[in-house]
Nucleic acid binder design. Structure first.
Ligand SMILES: [Mn+2]
Ligand SMILES: [Mn+2]
Ligand SMILES: [Mn+2]
Ligand SMILES: [Mn+2]
Lengths: 234, 234
DNA sequence: GAGATTTTTTAGTCTTATCTAAAATCCATG
DNA sequence: CATGGATTTTAGATAAGACTAAAAAATCTC
């Protein structure tokens, strides 16, 4: 325990609402660069007007840059704060599964609240007990304590072409029911999959999962991220 | 896992502020019957005006009975809600010590926030992992899941007369520094103690703790509750 | 029992976060 | 490049919970 000598730790905590906004912006901006009001509103189940209000406040606090009518981006300070919340969330999810018998589909809701209440000390203890893991139960990377973040983006299962093969790496965790169904299908991180065929017009995919052929709707397949096997990656 | 058949559970949760007020009222009323505005204000570090406001709101929600200028008492619904929070708090404290390496003096602050964020499911899982304990790390009883509450009041160490002997059963947990010092003195639950003498005018006590004589200020001694040994209890 | 003091309540303000309805702006299309 | 539709922002309201300052009630003191 040498760490007691370290800096007294910022521990600056934002409100619950601010933390959830920052987290959402962080995840969304990873895909699209800047984040629209409507996207944020949908993700957080708020009205667009509420989002505009909060975004203005975040901008005043220096956590985001806001170009009216265009969108927001996190500043450096905003990203730091967002990664801190994401780290908490993912460590807590893994802890609940490993040490408290939680199931895959139930941890998200619990972590969504605990992430705002846990101190830095608690989070680091949890990380230590888990052996400082780098991947959460749904396959998402866990940012480091200083916000180290491993960039990686896998294509969605729904984007693959017939014949393509890969390994499931990450699954969206927001909806318990869908998550339970994905588990039934065998679609969770580290499962090898091969796309056998796909119906036109956003129709279902035929996917080979552990020797069995499964039909997967395209909305569901969009929740599943796959690392393509070697040279197949086009 | 038969419990899935049980009732869907009320899980009705109040706000963080409401929960903290109910908890404080519950603890205070155990000593004095009804609770004054000023006592509540001091305990919660709020102004008396804020307390009056909240008390009015609690009364409207049917959680307390309020006689203006006299004080509040919990209703049955209020007591149920309060015991639920106290249960959470104490289970969480014990869990943090047993499973996450927390020290005696640090758990209270952490539990003070987590008690509002943890779901009933999480709390019951924690209780199960701990083997459904009935006493928290500071010696306070843990209410049951349905609010079962074991009445017990021990005299404070500061009230004992020279010559009286007993066993420490409970220690007030609010202040980390004092708590650390009490641990140094050896004054924690299950330690046998004998009062050797006491100075007048709220002066310090001379107390025999595990063969050593210690000087304990009366304010500190008031934090320690002692079960008197057999027929000595006068 | 009349002041003086303490305690509690009232009145009014502030902050955070949300909403609905209306206005402003952007963008696609003809 | 005008206009209709979608998106975003503004305006105004509400709720929770906190505060300060002032008024009211209870209590203490002589
Ligand atoms: Mn999650
Ligand atoms: Mn959250
Ligand atoms: Mn405590
Ligand atoms: Mn609390």
């Amino acid at each position: 325990m040498v760490s007691e000598i370290e800096r007294p730790a910022p521990e600056q905590s934002h409100t619950r609402a601010v933390e959830d906004y920052l987290k959402a912006i962080c995840v969304l901006q990873r895909e699209t660069g800047s984040v629209q009001t409507s996207a944020l509103a949908q993700r957080l189940s708020r009205t667009p007007a509420s989002v505009t209000n909060m975004v203005k406040s975040l901008a005043e606090q220096g956590l985001v840059e806001h170009v009216p009518y265009y969108g927001v981006r996190l500043t450096l300070a905003g990203e730091r704060a967002a990664l801190r919340v994401i780290r908490r969330h993912r460590l807590i999810e893994l802890y609940l599964i490993r040490h408290l018998g939680y199931s895959w589909d139930r941890v998200h809701a619990e972590a969504e609240r605990l992430e705002h209440a846990a101190s830095d000390e608690l989070v680091e203890r949890i990380s230590a007990v888990l052996g400082h893991p780098e991947i959460d139960p749904h396959g998402s990377p866990i940012p480091g304590p200083e916000g180290e973040w491993q960039e990686r983006t896998y294509p969605a299962l729904s984007e693959l072409m017939p014949g393509q093969t890969g390994v499931v790496r990450e699954v969206s965790d927001a909806d318990p029911e869908r998550l339970r169904y994905l588990a039934d299908l065998g679609l969770y991180p580290s499962t090898p999959v091969t796309v056998l065929g796909r119906a036109p017009f956003e129709g279902p995919l035929r996917v080979l999962v552990r020797g069995e052929e499964k039909l997967v709707g395209s909305a569901l397949a969009a929740m599943v991220r796959v690392e393509l096997t070697h040279e197949q990656a086009r």
